[in-house]
């Protein structure tokens, strides 16, 4: 099952900003950035390989920081190595959820710490051409190493920046595709697809920095 560790709570703009704007007493205090680690988010598919893949996507909501079965209140959905966003249109693959919101995503190059600003011009949504996070090895978030290790490796330096269904922002670094995120996964024996990722969620409306 999925575990959510409410681990680190980030340093925040809150203190800094509130101290700067102390003379403006009417402004609501900003909420703190939420830095979380999600482990073992299980996102299996039915079929795959030579068969067409099918099966429900595992949906995730940044606001609650947890997996959800809601048809509408979700931001990102996973199935095997495919990642969808709750915005745009259906891509045409089997059993994909309806897009009910205006969520979007782009891939930034950097570390989770180095991506401090959202570039709203880069956001893309799923289309009939395919998901905004392109599928396939080397195109989106992972590389498949092939012979002899057969590993799915999240591409280092790939940060997924999201606009959520509620119009807020989050940045995600996927760390592992294997159960319990082993330090040295074995492509042939370790279980997949179990997503482990770090994310930072900006809970404040309209703020595009992390």
């Amino acid at each position: 099952m999925m575990n959510i560790f409410k681990s680190l709570t980030a340093v925040s703009l809150v203190l800094a900003l509130s101290s700067c704007s102390s003379d403006d007493d009417t402004a609501a205090p900003l909420e703190e950035l939420e830095s979380e680690t999600v482990t073992n988010l299980y996102a299996p598919e039915i079929g795959g390989r030579v068969e067409p893949s099918s099966g429900d996507f595992t949906k995730f909501d940044f606001e609650t920081g947890s997996e959800t079965t809601s048809e509408t209140d979700w931001d990102v959905a996973f199935r095997s190595t495919t990642i969808l966003v709750n915005g745009g249109s259906k891509t045409g693959i089997t059993d994909e959820p309806e897009r009910t919101a205006d969520a979007a995503v782009y891939i930034a190059s950097g570390t989770l710490a180095s991506i401090t600003e959202v570039d709203t011009s880069l956001f893309a949504q799923d289309t009939t051409e395919g998901p905004a996070i392109a599928i396939g090895s080397g195109n989106g978030w992972y590389n498949y190493t092939g012979e002899p290790y057969h590993l799915i490796k999240p591409i280092p330096g790939t940060i997924l920046v999201f606009r959520t269904s509620e119009g807020k922002y989050a940045k995600v670094e996927i760390l592992s595709y294997y159960e319990n995120a082993p330090e040295e996964p074995d492509g042939l024996s370790d279980a997949t697809p179990y997503y482990t990722f770090d994310y930072v969620y900006q809970p404040n409306e309209g703020i595009t920095t992390f």
Partner: peptide, 9 residues
């Protein structure tokens, strides 16, 4: 540095 750790440039 390890398969499950954050990336660096």
């Amino acid at each position: 540095s390890a398969a499950n750790s954050p990336a660096f440039a």
